[in-house]
Nucleic acid binder design. Structure first.
Length: 490
RNA sequence: GGCCCGGUGGUCAAGCGGUUAAGACUCCGCCCUUUCACGGCGGCAACACGGGUUCGAGUCCCGUCCGGGUCACCA
């Protein structure tokens, strides 16, 4: 068995196989993660195989620790892979730099089959050509070198690249699930470099070889590769291989004309997590960015997505990432959590924000849960617990509550003895004491409760009403703050 | 500039020749509530434009405009 038939014999058949093939940049783009999600969903929906391949053929862009970010993100999101650098499978290795010798052999094979040729042009000559006309194709100088010329250069050790030999006539049609059939004249295509002079493949070539050798049935990638897709077909054709199903996805945008980009300060996945978004919410949100199952439901767990996902419903047009909607969805996830789970999630944030001993954080968390959109906005909501902020006495005036500085003062003055008399400081006793004051004064509830809330928190918006806040602060601190309010109003 | 792709409210997004053109987010109003929030109810707001085809077009065709992608020994 020769080398090539040996390689071919390893290719699994019969099942859906997809791959996520990121190049290690050190962070996970939202768009990238969405591609990973869709790719995973396609495989899992069909009970197929999902594999991870690292595309690190650009030696100048290697980033230390970058592959860890990929592993960690996928794991965190629940996008498990069956094969990958860390999970040996039948078609490894799964890191392109370790597949180096493979590409060289396939490049040779392609030359033999007439689909490629060696190009000895120097980088300098190419640069010159490019400077003269930046959008011109390669001029084809090495395309028709005689065998003798080639042998001489080879013998002399002249460095070379391998270029794809595009037919000069005719046209090529390729099919994409999302975009349909696209036909282009071959004359518009360039003889692109397949194998660089360092022996490593370019993205175009590595992709075709790897996807074939790894038995990939559905290729999911960004629409920026759409225009190079016809060249892929030509490559598959030249090799005599079956063309996989293409699924090109439009980009995730920051606004109508810009892609999301780290450079412009747009958040990566890990940034969003650091901002207090839940992994599940982010996954749910990006699944719906450019894909819709139809119907009115919007909240889906990963497993539910897996069941209903159909890649035919991926949209052609780009989608703008809307943080406001993500925030809403995040709040939905928070509200749906078991109280205990939310408590544990919120605890680190609360511990950092509240240092006063004796505050019942479990109780606090329960008050906060329906009011929290993003974990990081917890701190600002509870900052009044440690220290009563300076506040404007005008805050006591609330037109709907019908409060004035005068009746507020009166209310606070009545509340102090009433609360002082409470011996067992619990929710129901505090409630009763406060409502006794309401009755005693013969006013609306708000006329007493609003001033208490302000006095005790210094804020208009708080994680609970007067009763809850008093309970949280404890009797002593409550009375201290009430008296402070009284002196402020006097 | 050449080639390719796209274009339904501010955003996401149903729609697949006949609908009062769904729904969600945002925003606004009302109700509930001790405030805010939650929840409930209601509202504002869209088929880029022009020609065809058709009894009938957001849906099909052509053109225009606008936007994006791509034209590297980057992926």
């Amino acid at each position: 068995m020769d080398f090539f038939t040996q390689q071919e014999s390893r290719i699994p058949t019969g099942k859906v196989r997809t791959r996520f093939a990121p190049s290690p940049t050190g962070y996970m783009h939202v768009g990238n993660l969405r591609t990973a999600l869709y790719t995973w969903l396609i495989a899992r929906h069909a009970n197929g195989t999902f594999l991870l391949r690292i595309e690190d053929t650009d030696q100048e862009r290697l980033v230390e620790g970058a592959t860890d970010v990929i592993y960690n993100t996928l794991r965190q999101c629940g996008l498990d892979h069956d094969e990958g650098p860390d999970k040996p499978g039948p078609v490894g290795p799964y890191i392109q730099s370790e597949r180096r010798s493979l590409y060289g052999k396939y490049a040779e094979l392609l030359i033999e089959k007439g689909g490629a040729y060696r190009c000895f042009c120097t980088k300098e000559r190419l640069d010159e050509l490019h400077a003269k006309n930046p959008t011109a194709k390669y001029d084809g100088r090495c395309r028709h070198l005689s065998q003798q010329e080639i042998d001489e250069k080879l013998a002399a050790g002249v460095p070379y690249v391998v270029r794809q030999k595009i037919p000069t006539e005719g046209e090529t049609t390729f099919s994409d699930v999302i975009f349909g059939d696209i036909t282009v004249p071959n004359a518009d295509l360039d003889d692109n470099i397949l194998l660089k002079s360092d022996g490593l493949p370019t993205y175009n070539f590595a992709n075709v070889v790897d996807d074939h050798l790894m038995g990939i049935t559905h290729v999911v990638r960004g629409s920026e590769y759409l225009s190079s897709a016809p060249k892929y077909n030509l490559l598959y054709e030249a090799f005599g291989w079956d063309v996989p199903t293409y699924i090109h996805c439009s980009p995730v945008m920051r606004d109508a004309q810009h892609k999301m980009s780290k450079r412009h300060g747009d958040p990566s996945f890990e940034d969003l997590i650091a901002e207090g978004y839940l992994t599940e919410a982010v996954i749910n949100y990006i699944a719906l960015l450019g894909w819709s199952p139809g119907g009115e439901r919007e909240i889906f767990s990963l497993d539910e997505l897996r069941q209903i996902f159909d890649f035919h419903d991926i949209s052609k047009s780009p989608a703008v990432f809307d943080k406001a909607k993500l925030t809403w969805m995040n709040a939905e996830y928070i509200k749906a959590m078991a109280p205990e789970a939310f408590y544990e999630l919120a605890l680190p944030y609360l511990q950092k924000a509240v240092s006063t001993p004796g505050i019942d954080l479990r109780y606090l968390a329960a008050l906060l849960q329906p009011r929290c959109e993003v974990l990081t906005d917890l701190a600002e909501k509870v900052d009044f617990l440690d220290v009563l902020p300076e506040y404007d006495p005008a805050m006591y005036v609330h037109k709907k509550m019908k409060t004035t500085p005068e009746n507020s003062l009166q209310a606070l003055q009545a509340c102090v003895p009433a609360l002082e008399a409470v011996t067992d400081w619990n929710e129901s006793n505090i409630h009763d004491a406060l409502f006794a004051v309401v009755e005693q004064l013969g006013v609306k509830n708000g006329v007493v409760l609003w001033p208490v809330r302000v006095a005790v928190s210094g804020k208009q918006s708080t994680p609970g009403g007067a009763v809850e806040l008093c309970l949280l602060l404890g009797k002593e601190e409550t009375l201290r703050r009430l008296n402070k309010g009284i002196s402020l109003l006097s």
